[in-house]
Amino acid sequence: MVYALSLVVDQELLALGRAFGELRRRNLNVSAITLGPGAEAGQARLTVIVDADEGTVEMAMRKLLKVSGVRGATHEPQ
């Protein structure tokens, strides 16, 4: 199943690195990544397209929400 993960992240490389680290650790199959400005100053919106089962994605989302610098995370099946 393909999901779009949408994260609001502090606009700094370290926060992005931490978020990517969580995805890398889970060895998720990532097919696309986009990064753009967030709704608020100092924040970025990171969208990641992954192919994984629902349980794996939900677990990754819960872990991502714990990451320092990640302000929000939602996911939608594509």
Partner: peptide
């Protein structure tokens, strides 16, 4: 060291 400790800390920064 910030990069090294990223996955083993709750938070790290320079």
């Amino acid at each position: 060291v910030v990069g090294i400790t990223l996955p083993i800390t709750k938070h790290s920064c320079l």
